[in-house]
Deep mutational scan, measured.
Amino acid sequence: MAAGGDHGSPDSYRSPLASRYASPEMCFVFSDRYKFRTWRQLWLWLAEAEQTLGLPITDEQIQEMKSNLENIDFKMAAEEEKRLRHDVMAHVHTFGHCCPKAAGIIHLGATSCYVGDNTDLIILRNALDLLLPKLARVISRLADFAKERASLPTLGFTHFQPAQLTTVGKRCCLWIQDLCMDLQNLKRVRDDLRFRGVKGTTGTQASFLQLFEGDDHKVEQLDKMVTEKAGFKRAFIITGQTYTRKVDIEVLSVLASLGASVHKICTDIRLLANLKEMEEPFEKQQIGSSAMPYKRNPMRSERCCSLARHLMTLVMDPLQTASVQWFERTLDDSANRRICLAEAFLTADTILNTLQNISEGLVVYPKVIERRIRQELPFMATENIIMAMVKAGGSRQDCHEKIRVLSQQAASVVKQEGGDNDLIERIQVDAYFSPIHSQLDHLLDPSSFTGRASQQVQRFLEEEVYPLLKPYESVMKVKAELCL
């Protein structure tokens, strides 16, 4: 049975990233139509530049190519590739079939990587351009969430054990800070992308030097003109047959890092959902379990974690691919890159769409948070109580021993009897502590235990987050809708 299948058929496997999760716009960027249309555009740009620099290419040939950029006979191309065992030459023939007058000058002087690699770089750039505003929107939604809850005390956790208090907004800023680093890295790697350009079979530009009869300047002009037509500021000066596969490492490393950030955020949300302090959106008709109707599973956060793990592992592909590119190139890269580049971007696209949807509907339960604080705060307040007693004339050592005994009794009630923490009640009825009984409410005010959390939130948002989001103001209103 021949390899390949009808990918629109229910009898043929289709990647869930495309069929179930990723956005239509990201799927289109990695589609065959987008790819092969870009090949034709690159052939047109090459012909236009070659004509401008004096090669015998007519206006009629150029116009014929322009008129057929979208006229792609995919069936013919597939048949040609089956016959020739070469995808680029299959599309040269297919393009030439609908451009008979231009057929002889299509791909003039070029090698397969002229269309293959340059198209990949265009796709990487455009895919990054799709991700950047999506990530900015996630940051914006979380920034709104953090600002609104900047002063809401909550129990902090280290080692997932109760620690000092923080605020809900401050905790959210930990998430935002990681995503801001990801946004900066995505922008950097996007701006650092260079075009492969017009380089020939081993990167020496020998074929173009021959076409222009040894004119170095025209060869350099050709490279520059096509690079500018493709919208790049610069091209690699040095290439082998391909652009260095280190570029793929750079791009997928940034995406993998984004995956790590999203995994951490969504894990926190899942843990908070278990504590009943916070939940992701839950639709009115949504079913959490087929057997347990009360369940409210954090399905979206779980999906993000599941896909983020996949995204983090994909960076190993370009690392290994770059390491086995012998001399000017081997074909070890080809099949692998067809999979890992598309999957990385479709996965990143999915987790950003999902995280935006989550961040637009996060639900906080202040009463649950308050109750958990009441359970733990008495123990945390013991040092403040000791200091207040010393100020009232008591002995630190005597007070410490009193607190120690009462704390152990209260802990026994919590752990052995399943009761509430009654340390404060014990202190309130103990005559030894009568000098500070009137101060206990103040000493137990949760806001006095959150330090500068709310001020940190305000400063972080104003100095770091809002300036970073400013270039994306025009796209901030787009909502994230999930079908599944």
Rank of each mutant, 00 (worst) to 15 (best):
M387P: 01
G418L: 03
R396K: 07
K147E: 12
S253N: 11
E279Q: 09
Q210A: 08
T154G: 04
R372M: 05
T350P: 06
V364Y: 02
P298E: 02
P467S: 10
F160N: 07
M292V: 01
L69M: 11
L469A: 11
L209D: 13
H217E: 10
S207M: 05
P133H: 13
T201C: 06
R372I: 05
V254S: 10
M299K: 02
D317S: 09
E80G: 09
K470Q: 14
N336S: 12
L222Q: 01
I237C: 09
H442E: 12
H86V: 00
G109I: 00
H91P: 04
K199E: 00
V465L: 12
R426W: 07
R303A: 02
N68S: 10
V429P: 02
F74S: 12
Q416A: 09
K134D: 15
L443Y: 05
V368H: 04
I72Q: 13
P378T: 07
D120G: 06
N68V: 09
I358T: 13
E81K: 00
V247N: 07
L130Y: 08
D87Q: 04
E280K: 01
I57P: 04
W43S: 03
D144I: 14
R337P: 01
V368G: 04
H93Y: 14
S448H: 14
P318W: 05
T450K: 06
F36N: 13
T267F: 13
T330R: 02
A273P: 03
I403V: 12
K101C: 09
H159R: 01
I369A: 13
D59P: 09
K295E: 04
A453C: 11
T382Q: 07
S334M: 04
C99R: 05
E213D: 07
E80M: 10
L482H: 10
D129R: 07
L186F: 12
Q210R: 15
V226M: 15
A260L: 04
R125I: 05
K134G: 12
D441C: 12
A102R: 00
E463A: 10
K224M: 09
A322Q: 10
L307V: 15
F157P: 00
L186P: 03
Q164M: 13
Q458T: 13
F449G: 03
L319A: 00
R303T: 01
L193D: 01
I373M: 11
R83A: 11
G104V: 13
E228F: 07
D11L: 09
S151Q: 11
S395F: 06
T154L: 08
Q456L: 13
S253V: 12
M225P: 02
S438D: 07
L155C: 03
E463I: 08
L209G: 10
G54A: 13
V405Q: 08
L252F: 08
R137F: 10
G8T: 15
E401V: 04
L121A: 11
S289Q: 00
R40S: 01
C304R: 01
P162K: 00
F28W: 06
R171I: 00
I287E: 02
T330P: 01
T119K: 01
L46P: 01
A2C: 15
F30T: 06
S448P: 11
Q428E: 10
R171T: 01
R329T: 00
S448G: 14
V254N: 12
Q51N: 06
V168E: 04
D6I: 14
A102Q: 05
A335T: 11
L193N: 03
E464M: 08
F28N: 07
K470T: 14
F232R: 01
I105Q: 12
T382S: 13
F379C: 03
K477E: 15
T313N: 07
V219T: 08
L53F: 07
G104N: 13
L258T: 08
G361D: 14
R337I: 02
G259Y: 02
K101N: 08
L69F: 06
A78N: 12
V88S: 08
R194D: 04
E302D: 02
V429H: 15
S257K: 10
H217W: 13
M299E: 02
F327M: 11
A49N: 03
T111M: 03
N274L: 05
R371V: 02
K295N: 04
P366M: 03
I385Q: 01
G54E: 14
S140Y: 15
C266L: 12
R141A: 15
G259K: 00
F74I: 15
R149I: 03
D398G: 12
L44W: 06
R309F: 07
Q285H: 11
D32E: 14
Q439C: 14
V219Y: 02
F28C: 06
Q285D: 12
L461A: 02
K284V: 11
S67N: 13
D445H: 11
E60W: 06
L423G: 02
E148F: 11
G5N: 14
H91K: 01
L443D: 04
E48S: 07
K264L: 04
K75G: 10
S31E: 07
L362D: 03
L319V: 07
L135F: 11
P298K: 00
R188N: 08
S23N: 08
S31A: 13
A146T: 06
V363A: 04
F28I: 06
M476E: 15
L314W: 07
D215L: 07
H263T: 12
L444Y: 05
K233R: 11
F282D: 10
A453E: 03
